[in-house]
Amino acid sequence: MSRAALLVLADGRFPAGGHAHSGGAEEAVKAGRITGAASLEEFCRGRLHTAGLVAASLAAAAAVGVDAVALDAAADARTASPALRVAARKLGRQLMRAARATWPSGELDELARRFPKGAHQPVVLGVAARAAGLGAVEAAYCAAYESVSGPASATVRLLSLDPFDATGVLARLAPTVDLVVDRAVEAGRRVVGGGVEELPAGAAPLLEIGAEVHAAWAVRLFAS
């Protein structure tokens, strides 16, 4: 395992489309649920334990070689909001493109052939991690961290939040990210023998509802 490869994949500048998405932060800001660093932290903590855990588990399972088609269906079943399913597939497609160019691999080509319009992003992330020579732990870390770094950087733009405060939020969440990753990796490994039912299904109804509301806005900064 190359630690440097992990940094490449986890880099917020990895060109896979994440910059155009707020992870629900834009809607939460408008609704008054995120107003500053403290409420951003609570928002991120909730997201980490729900959408973040599910994403990290999917990524871990994909990284240990579980069938991507089954995982993609499991991701669909765990994503109630149609708008979020669309966003996840869009981001999956963009990540697939970036990963195939970065770490050419037969498995990524096969995934692209199977899902020309994109599979769920965490599933692609897991396969991309494999192609980069990384394992379940690294894939889960990327997914879990992304689930909070996206909203944090979006909030800097949305609220003109002090960027140091936003980064402080991420640092304070680090122990929770570690915990979520541990659970995700266990779940991802259980899927090998036990099937996708082993995946957690933690849902955040307000995130799903917010995503639907956001998708209907005529004017917005972020795609989701």
Binding site: P15, A16, G18, H19, A20, Q94, L95, R97, A98
Partner: peptide, 20 residues
């Protein structure tokens, strides 16, 4: 294409959405 508040990112640094 939706650019997430940053049009130059979408045409220069991360062109994936435009390529799609």
């Amino acid at each position: 294409v939706e650019t997430g508040a940053c049009p130059h990112t979408a045409i220069r640094d991360d062109i994936s959405a435009n390529l799609e």
